[in-house]
C-alpha cells in the first residue's frame, strides 16, 4: 500500500483543485510563524490568525480576478 502510495499518482477527486491551496497555505504559515514568533506558547493563536489573513487575501484576489475576467471589455460577458 505504502509502496504504491508514493509510486503511482493518485487521482484527484476534488471539483476544484483550488481547495488544495489551503494545506499549502497552512504549511507555509505554520513554518513562518514557528520561526518568527517570540513566545512559542503563542504559536497556535498567531498561526490561526495568519491563516485567516491568507485565506481572506486569496478570496479577495480570486474575486478581483473573477470580476476582471467577467466584466473586462472583450471578455465572454461582453461578446
Amino acid at each position: 500500500m505504502i509502496a504504491t502510495l508514493f509510486y503511482n499518482p493518485i487521482t484527484l477527486s476534488f471539483e476544484s483543485e483550488l481547495w488544495l491551496l489551503l494545506p499549502l497555505c497552512a504549511a507555509v504559515g505554520l513554518v513562518y510563524k514557528t520561526i518568527r514568533v517570540e513566545n512559542i506558547s503563542h504559536l497556535l493563536k498567531e498561526f490561526v490568525l495568519l491563516l485567516l489573513y491568507m485565506a481572506f487575501g486569496l478570496v479577495v484576489l480570486c474575486t478581483l480576478l473573477w470580476l476582471i475576467d467577467t466584466y473586462w471589455p472583450g471578455s465572454a460577458w461582453f461578446s
Binding site: F6, Y7, N8, P9, I10, P23
Partner: peptide, 11 residues
C-alpha cells in the same frame, strides 16, 4: 508537505 506531494504525484 513534501510527502503529501509525493503521495499525490507518485515517483
Amino acid at each position: 508537505l513534501f510527502w503529501s506531494g509525493m503521495a499525490i504525484g507518485g515517483v
